[in-house]
Write a protein that binds this DNA or RNA. Structure first.
Length: 475
RNA sequence: CGGGGUGUAGCGCAGUUGGAUUAGCGCACAUGAUUUGGGAUCAUGGGGUCGGGGGUUCGAGUCCCUCCACCCCGACCA
């Protein structure tokens, strides 16, 4: 366990550490246009893992994938008032087609609500057509002023689910169901504990009736909104005229939901689990789960490596021999940087004793294993153990960084000394949220489903409290 | 958009008062050899419109003007 010399320590400067890691682990690279990054092979492989897991789940629940156009005409974007006000400042426009100036400018989608709505209004006539459970995987563009790799880029990949239903109850049920899908994904695959709850009026999605969220806490105590699920009610179906005839032969507007997760979730993974040696990937989403390193370029070493790779693959583990023409030390460092959960070292010294060395990425523990044992099976169990340990460690840290504030001074002290999740009571008034935001930009993250009664009065104004809110500084 | 800063090889930098040439150094890269249990060593080699344009001068990476790009701090955001 030797600290990587080529990156800034995460305790010294977390922001530098992060930008070092994403590049050195070959997750992203910069392009020549500000805010537009290249998803490099390791980054894209990780995203494909995310896609696979979620897409399978979505389909199990009856959703279908579609693909909407990338361009939205101006008059379509502006149909829903709150929505356009939320997105207008950050859309990119296409104004020319070839040499010809366009009569109506076209916006590059910042999100596709309006496109789905237009489509739904065309295809829905009767309650028999409902529900429609569509999803799309695509990229969207938002012209951010300040950009950071994966956290805030001008183009990002995501998935947006848009469903319409014949009743409010059914749509609300869908909203909650998808929130649970995300929670399960974060906790059981990414090994990231998330706080789930409802966004306040101020923080909810532009045009939504209600917004629900999964909030994660990074190593440095900064919060990250990691996935959201919205209930739109009829807010979009009215302006977009998505009507159906119900069982009583009466025209009614549909009830709608939307839910999404972006490549930002990869940033969460990096910032929750990563350490001074690079990425640490939970086994369930690691594109390569076990790397096998031949210590010497000798035939007997290589043949053992090859056999191990085959055995592991047969057990359903994604394993790879690192054949690169580098020194052993270099390979150790390189594969640690990539976050590969488990490393098998095969060298002459081990082989003399008919054994190999096994090293965990998450806690650097090493052990010798006899080749007479079932190594593949051992790895399989160990990978499960690593997955569990990573979640427990992240949860312990999250809990340690969760505080209670009973006054504005408490909030100020916590934010300045050691940021994290801050539980505090709130009266429900937007003015108090704005007042709290003045403390280093502390925002309400959500009203958690597991509310606690901390005090009777609002932390800010002292009036009767309506909710316990979790606050924090956000990315 | 407001305040501050930086542009010299893929990356990180040096280049002193304008006179030092063919603009250097480290890392990275290429070839060869020896190596391989925590980022190997030696040898050889490739790579530059000094951010762009204009000006001053016998002479500009260096001085002046102008444009551009990027970074940091604020306001806005998945």
């Amino acid at each position: 366990m030797i600290k990587n010399k080529e990156i800034t320590s995460r305790d010294e400067n977390f922001a530098d550490w992060y930008t070092n890691i994403v590049q050195k682990a070959n997750i992203i690279d910069y392009s020549s246009v500000k805010g537009f990054t290249i998803l490099a092979p390791n980054g894209y492989a990780l995203w494909e893992k995310f896609q696979n897991i979620l897409d399978t789940k979505f389909k199990e629940l009856g959703h279908q994938n579609v693909y909407m156009p990338m361009l939205i005409p101006e008059n379509l974007l502006t149909k829903e008032k709150d929505h356009v006000e939320g997105f207008a400042p950050e859309v990119a426009w296409v104004t020319y087609g070839g040499e010809q100036k366009l009569e109506q400018k076209l916006c590059i989608r910042p999100t596709s609500e309006t496109l789905f709505c237009e489509y739904y209004s065309k295809i829905v006539k009767s309650y028999r057509d409902l529900p429609k459970l569509y999803n799309q995987w695509c990229s969207v563009v938002r012209w951010e002023k300040e950009t950071r790799p994966l956290l805030r880029s001008r183009e990002f990949l995501w998935q947006e689910g848009h469903t319409i239903h014949a009743s409010a109850e059914e749509a609300e049920k869908e909203t909650m169901q998808m929130l649970k899908v995300y929670q399960d994904f974060f906790e059981n695959y990414l090994a990231i504990p998330v706080l789930v709850g409802q966004k306040t009026e101020k923080e909810k999605f532009a045009g939504a009736e209600k917004t629900f969220t999964c909030e994660a806490l990074m190593y440095n105590g900064v919060t990250l909104q990691s996935a959201t699920s919205h209930y739109f009610g009829q807010n979009f179906s009215k302006p977009f005229d998505i009507k159906f005839l119900n069982r009583d032969n009466k025209l009614e507007y549909v009830y709608q939901t939307s839910w999404g997760i972006t490549t930002r979730s990869m940033a969460a993974l990096i910032m929750v689990h990563g350490d001074d040696n690079g990425l640490v990937l939970p086994p369930k989403v690691a594109p390569i789960q076990v790397v096998i390193i031949p210590i010497k370029d000798a035939p007997e070493v290589l043949s053992v490596c090859q056999k191990l790779e085959n055995d592991l693959k047969e057990t359903g583990i994604c394993a790879k021999v690192d054949n690169s023409n580098q020194s052993a030390g270099f390979k150790f460092a390189e594969n640690e940087m990539k976050g590969i959960p488990l490393r098998l070292e095969v060298g002459p010294r081990d082989l003399e004793n008919n054994q190999i060395t096994l090293a965990r990425r998450d806690n650097f523990e090493k052990q010798q294993v006899s080749l007479n044992e079932n190594v593949a099976n051992l790895c399989k169990n160990l990978l499960e153990q690593i997955q569990q340990d990573m979640f427990n460690r992240a949860k312990k840290r999250r809990d340690e960084k969760t505080y209670v504030a009973k006054s504005m001074q408490d909030i100020k002290d916590i934010i300045e000394k050691h940021p994290g999740f801050i539980k505090a009571m709130w009266c429900g008034d937007k003015a108090c949220e704005e007042e709290i935001k003045k403390i280093n930009g502390t925002k309400s993250r959500c009203i958690p489903f597991c509310e606690e009664h901390i005090a009777d009065t609002c932390v800010c104004c002292g009036k009767k409290a309506k909710h316990m809110v979790v606050w924090g500084i956000q990315y």
